[in-house]
Design a protein around this nucleic acid. Structure first.
Lengths: 358, 358
DNA sequence: CCGGTTTAGCAAACCGGTTTAGTAAAGGTA
DNA sequence: TACCTTTACTAAACCGGTTTGCTAAACCGG
């Protein structure tokens, strides 16, 4: 049998040893005022000497709550933890959760099934990040009566509380910045969903950012053709491949709009390998503002989003949903993005612009 | 009452609706071969239509296991998640845990008490990182009959399985490298424990690395005086402050041995502000080899340790301890470190060396 | 000294499942 | 037809706590 069972002191053991009922032992811990002070003390002493601690699972069962929050992600933990973005988000969630005395459980697919993971999860509610509309688990959670806060996919689940950032506005800022620098030839580098089949789209981020780019460019009279939008894995290598591939296909952008900083950095590397100077020959603007972006050469111009605050807000919404228990109109919050101009963007190269003609 | 209770289907509901006993419903899910095929199907259909899922907590209670692993840290999650080191470690643990179908729960102090957090934790075992000898929670866990794997503090808890890296050897490599470059004037920058009182020492890392530095230097006839060892918070700012402070106190090292990359980077920044060139005037060698170190200018020479593998190994040890249930002699594993020479270390400056005289 | 209130503690029900031991009916054999 | 298996299912015990309702003793004022 399990070792745990073998040598762990149970409440009945303490009761017997102290010559009282189980009730008294329970009271000694949770309701001492219902016992005479010396009895309470005696019971607690016996408990300590036996090394008794209430079994947390049994406690959860009777109290009907776990004091645990779940962070739900459709990707394997071993991949999300490699993403500094995710860590920072978790940091935000953790800060608020710990303050409220809640623990954190990470819920990721069990042998490929997110649904099974959700069923196993002993939590009072979920914060879901990167879930796109086609995830039936959300409905499953709703039916289980557990609250869930959506992050980065408000639009797909209007009936749940949600936290988003203004992706579209941020994309507009990025595009506007490059337009103001005189650029007319753009390449957009997008992130492709990790699961090939489903056009998961990370809850719509890609669509919203693309929309922002498109509209801002359109306002300046530039129509972003489909072959000026390429996608790849959200990594440095993915970004390199995107730019290199587009170049090979004959694209000659003077400005690159990347939907992630990692890809932007990859694009810079690729540009350099093509003999281009950044930003003299080609400008690159990222998205997210990860730590690394500040440190590369040249420092990356990018759109900052408040990742940690996203986590904090999501956690707050979840806690209040748990506390209220009933759900009034779900609270949707949108956090602002802002452009951070550093060294990877500069004026459009005059010569080329002329040479490229228009 | 809790919403969960209000509208969640229980096993009894399914039983009633299907006209069978609770036992039958349980069998339909866990032991279908003990039921006639059509009864099993019917029960499952009813269950689905009612949106029934077995209550995970109840299940844990009867099965006596949680299928969850705990990662134990004496610091708040909101701080550890800011540490890329921790993320990478978690990545390793997660990879192995997910493979085995285990979930991950993060156990950090609840309102300052790690003991309470441990009591609340519904896990089958712990991986503890950064725990020093004076942590009574380890004994508490042992008495609860749960296995625990120590990371980076094997020496303090010989009775538990453990994973370490060869900190001492790595420190030797770093010091040896600088000695070979002709350096004679050293400054060691160490990390100070986050909790001021306890000289926690992160489970002995600081001591082991310092020992390595000391011995290697001693072998070259250099005695590392106490005022050539300074400590600060394990951050970029902490590193800056350390070097700046030491400089102010009259130290004039040509070589800095930092116990963390973040601090090494801080030291480089501080050196620059003092008008020193790296590595022409002063060499800096870090420890850990974080992602960022590769990207700064100049790229950091540092001691690499296999952080992700540390997580993987720790998780494997834990899983096998859980499976065996009894504990034979605890398995202690030491992973190798290696020196990565990049741009922040160079020959000792001749002029100064002469001027400094010895 | 009596009736009413407070105090201290207990037995039993409960949380929501799993598992053991057992039974009634169907099927098979002599 | 009587007897033994097998099949299909159930009642009750159990996991380890918490909580409700109750009782007996102590206390208290008149």
């Amino acid at each position: 049998m399990r070792q745990e069972t073998r040598d762990r002191a149970r409440i009945a053991d303490v009761a017997r040893e102290a010559g009282v009922s189980k009730t008294a032992v329970s009271f000694a811990f949770n309701n001492p005022e219902r016992l005479s002070p010396d009895t309470a003390t005696r019971i607690r002493d016996v408990a300590t000497s036996l090394g008794y601690r209430p079994h947390p699972v049994a406690r959860m069962l009777t109290q009907g709550r776990t004091r645990t929050l779940g962070i739900l992600t459709p990707q394997a933990l071993s991949v999300v933890f490699a993403n500094p973005f995710f860590s920072t988000f978790s940091e935000g969630v953790a800060a608020v959760a710990e303050e409220a005395g809640y623990g954190l459980f990470f819920v990721s697919p069990v042998h490929g099934s997110l649904a099974r993971a959700v069923n196993r999860a002993t939590v009072d509610g979920f914060v879901a990040i990167g879930l796109s509309e086609d995830h039936p688990e959300v409905e499953q959670i709703r039916r289980a009566g557990l609250p869930i806060v959506m992050v980065d996919s408000a639009a797909a689940f209007p009936e749940h509380p949600a936290v988003d950032v203004d992706d579209e506005g941020g994309a507009r800022l990025a595009a506007g910045h490059l337009l103001a620098l005189g650029h007319r030839e753009f390449l957009v580098i997008g992130v492709e969903p990790p699961t090939p089949g489903a056009h998961a789209d990370f809850g719509g981020i890609v669509g919203r950012r693309l929309k922002g780019y498109r509209e801002e460019l359109a306002a300046a009279g530039i129509d972003l053709a489909d072959d000026h939008v390429v996608v790849g894995p959200a990594s440095v290598e993915g970004g390199s491949a995107c730019l290199a591939g587009a170049w090979e296909d004959g694209r000659r952008p003077t400005a690159v709009l990347a939907m992630s900083d990692a890809m932007a950095i990859g694009a810079i590397n690729a540009a350099r390998r093509l003999g281009l100077r950044v930003p003299a020959d080609i400008s690159v603007v990222g998205f997210d503002d990860i730590e690394l972006s500040r440190h590369i050469e040249p420092p990356l111009t990018t759109v900052h989003q408040p990742v940690r605050r996203k986590g904090e807000e999501a956690c707050r919404l979840l806690l209040s949903a748990i506390a209220r228990d009933d759900s009034p109109r779900p609270d949707h919050r949108t956090l602002e993005t802002r452009l951070i101009v550093r060294g990877s963007s500069g004026p459009a190269p005059i010569g080329k612009e002329v040479a490229g003609g228009r």
